[in-house]
Amino acid sequence: MSTAVLDTPPAPEAPVQSFTVTLIIRRFDPDQDTEPRWQDFDVEMFPTDRILDALHKIKWEQDGSLTFRRSCAHGICGSDAMRINGRNRLACKTLIKDLDISKPIYVEAIKGLPLEKDLIVDMEPFFASYREVQPFLIPNSKPEKGKERVQSVADRARFDDTTKCILCAACTSSCPVFWTDGQYFGPAAIVNAHRFIFDSRDDASQVRLDILNDKEGVWRCRTTFNCTDACPRGIQVTQAIAEVKQAILMGKR
């Protein structure tokens, strides 16, 4: 019996170079500040680190009062959407090496929602418009006893893109219409309406189309494509909104 042995030990990998990155973070403490202020931090980072790691380093080693949301830290929970160098990104999916580190990195809370503290905003208006599009299955028929509702592969693929939404609010808070008109449903709510409007098992698509045919509905969209650019899940948000517009005009899904 032979044991696999490496003939030559692998060459020791070159140590990954770390470097100092400057983060300029928009801080706001409602107990002390009347206006948000920018504060800069220097952190030692590796190119493979993420902005979230930088925020952790600051919070754990430099300033414990820095406040931000994060849960899974792997781009699924949608807690840590923030504005990084002026673009809405998930802090846990933005690698340092993808940014220009010769300049400071600006990090601030997402826009258009009430700022609560540092990088945390009040998400309630966002979730309120999400709830309004009735994002749950409304079927008129009962499935066969003991069976699930059957759906063809093609029918499932019709709305596959919009099932990916993690409700991080990166799209809605990148929308210039939402910034000025907080009543607008916003891309995320329309994406989640799209997910049920085009679901063959659902029977209430007309209800949702009527909701979105309102003054603050899909007609507010000006196809700026900020939402598509911001989506960390790569959802074609503007296309989904356009499909909802078309469904309203044609009167069917």
Partner: peptide, 14 residues
């Protein structure tokens, strides 16, 4: 629904 349904009449936005 937390906002009232659209009133009947011409949908000017559309």
């Amino acid at each position: 629904p937390s906002r009232p349904a659209r009133k009947r009449g011409v949908n000017w936005e559309k």
